[in-house]
Design a protein around this nucleic acid. Sequence first.
DNA 1: TTACATGCAAAGCATTTGCAGATAA
DNA 2: TTATCTGCAAATGCTTTGCATGTAA
Lengths: 150, 150
Amino acid sequence: MSSETNVFDPFSAYNIALRKIEDSGIRPTKQRRVLAKMLFEKGDRHVTAENLLDEVKKENRKISMATIYNTLKQFTSLGLIREIVVDQNKSLYCTNNKSHYHLYIEDEGKIHDIPTKNINLDIPSIPACLTLHNIDVIVRIRSLKDNKKK
Amino acid sequence: MSSETNVFDPFSAYNIALRKIEDSGIRPTKQRRVLAKMLFEKGDRHVTAENLLDEVKKENRKISMATIYNTLKQFTSLGLIREIVVDQNKSLYCTNNKSHYHLYIEDEGKIHDIPTKNINLDIPSIPACLTLHNIDVIVRIRSLKDNKKK
DNA sequence: TTACATGCAAAGCATTTGCAGATAA
DNA sequence: TTATCTGCAAATGCTTTGCATGTAA
């Protein structure tokens, strides 16, 4: 392990998240810090509550499912993560904060980010009484073989 | 009521749907015909299973929820309707068969179609081994007042 | 000290399923 | 006649909630 491994980087995704948590007034509890580490120290991720629970278990820690759900919602409302809706039966959260779209491989259930610059999208202007919250673009693809079987 | 009301139009959305049902091999049962009428004789609609059940009740008919769910799935796989995923907790089905995007007013839970021509979207070409299934574009807006209350 | 957080188990809710009875062809 | 469909009620699975206990400030 090089000495650089432990250099404190105030601008790491994790430290930025931690500061936003503190600034927002919610407490940076142990559970929240552990989950923030998982979410923000592994690059851009797409996770479900279940994924996180499994990961917590693998590290021999213990955080309840209720807390994981609460935390995901809090992080979402703080703007740390983004909820993406690709299918009805499971909530997916995306840790990529840069503006981007999604590529969803339906038969694999896998999702990938598409940088905004790779898709050109022009939408009409929004009336003054309304605010644009977000634009979700999900490009849904299937592998050919899956498509063939009707 | 003018006599034209009962003129048979083989190209009405309902009759087209009915033919697709027959052609596909599934039986045009009473329930399926009633639901097809509700879906296709009222212009472009966005409905949930619950909406349809309520409508059925209002007409003093009775179709079970299980049948409504089954029918919505069958109609979707026949390509008669399209499932749109705006939020995790309820499936919405859209009867507009023309290519289009969606405008979702988050604080009202209302959804509207946006004709494709009003949005310019350029996506990169898809590798030959994959098929593009669909591109969902959901423009999410909020009314200003809702936005203010943090 | 006390307001806020966590964990558990129970509740909630949309959707699916198993199966007996009904129905279209 | 028989393969298919419907309706009921029970099951499922994700998510939320109520509440007692724990913890950060």
